[in-house]
Amino acid sequence: MKRYRWLNAPQQWSGDESHLHVVTDGATDFWRETWYGFKRFSGHFYGTEVNGDFTFQAHIQADFKTLYDQAGIMLVADETCWLKAGIEYNDGQPAIGSVLTQGHSDWTTGVFPGNARNFWMRLTRRGDSLRLQYSADGNVWPLLRLFHLKAQHCRVGVMCCTPERAGLAVDFSELTLTPPLDKALHDLS
Rank of each mutant, 00 (worst) to 15 (best):
C160F: 05
L83C: 06
D187V: 09
L7C: 05
Y4E: 03
F64W: 05
C81L: 08
A116L: 04
V156F: 08
F64V: 10
F112I: 05
R155P: 00
I87C: 02
A166G: 13
I73N: 02
C81V: 12
Q152K: 11
H19K: 15
G157P: 03
C154E: 03
H153M: 08
T48C: 14
V158G: 04
P142T: 09
Y46D: 04
Q70Y: 03
D182A: 13
E164I: 01
D16K: 01
T66N: 11
D91V: 09
T101E: 05
A9F: 01
C160Y: 05
T124I: 12
H104A: 14
T108D: 12
Y89N: 03
R125D: 09
R5N: 11
G110L: 07
T109C: 11
S189D: 11
L149E: 03
E79Y: 03
G86A: 05
S189Q: 11
D137H: 06
A85C: 07
I87F: 01
G43A: 14
V22K: 06
G138Q: 04
C161F: 02
F45K: 04
G86I: 06
K39I: 15
R165A: 15
V22T: 05
L130H: 14
N90C: 14
V111T: 11
E174A: 14
V76D: 00
L100P: 05
E79F: 04
G15D: 08
I73T: 06
F30W: 04
H186C: 10
A116K: 00
L185H: 09
V111L: 11
G127K: 12
A85D: 04
L123T: 02
C160A: 15
D29R: 13
L185Y: 12
G103W: 08
T178Q: 10
V22Y: 08
H153G: 07
G52H: 10
G138R: 01
A166H: 11
W120F: 10
G97W: 03
